[in-house]
Design a protein around this nucleic acid. Structure first.
Length: 119
DNA sequence: TACTTGACCGTAT
DNA sequence: CATACGGCCAAGT
C-alpha cells in the first residue's frame, strides 16, 4: 500500500475517533490521537482539524487541549463558535475552559462520585 | 535541502 | 499561575 493511502487511513481513524465522542462530552487532542492508533501525535490531530474537508460533519468542537482549554485563539470567531456549540449540548464553558473532571471522556468515575452534570 | 510553524503534550522549575 | 524544554512531524517557505 502506498504511503499516501497509509496516511489517508490514519486520517480516517482520527476522524472516526472524533466522531465517536458522545454529545455533551469532550476529549483532548492527545486522547484522540491515542485512540486513533497514533499516540503522541496530538499535533497531527490539530493539524487535521484545521483543514477538515467540506461536507464532513465532524464534531470538531468536542476536541480540546489536555488542560480543558479551547485551542483556538481566544476571542476569534472559531473560539466563540466552539463555546457556543459546546454549551448548546450542555457542556459548561467558562473563560474558554471546560472542567474535564466532569465532561471529559475519562471522567466516568468522577461522575459517580460527584454526580452527573446534567441528565 | 534547511528552517520555520503550529486547533499539542508531559514534565520540571 | 508562568516559563522552559524536549517530543512529535506534516506543510509551507
Amino acid at each position: 500500500m502506498s504511503p499516501v493511502n497509509e496516511q489517508h487511513d490514519r486520517n480516517e481513524r482520527i476522524y472516526a475517533a472524533i466522531a465517536a465522542i458522545p454529545p455533551g462530552r469532550v476529549a483532548s487532542y492527545g486522547a484522540i490521537a491515542a485512540r486513533a492508533g497514533v499516540p503522541g501525535r496530538a499535533r497531527l490531530v490539530g493539524r487535521l482539524l484545521g483543514e477538515v474537508p467540506e461536507g464532513r460533519a465532524l464534531p470538531w468542537f468536542r476536541v480540546l487541549r489536555a488542560s480543558g482549554q479551547v485551542a483556538m485563539p481566544p476571542g476569534s470567531r472559531g473560539f466563540r463558535e466552539q463555546c457556543r456549540l459546546l454549551r448548546a449540548e450542555g457542556v459548561e464553558v467558562s473563560n474558554g475552559r471546560v472542567p474535564l473532571s466532569r465532561f471529559g471522556l475519562d471522567a466516568d468515575l468522577d461522575r459517580v462520585l460527584w454526580g452527573a452534570p446534567s441528565a
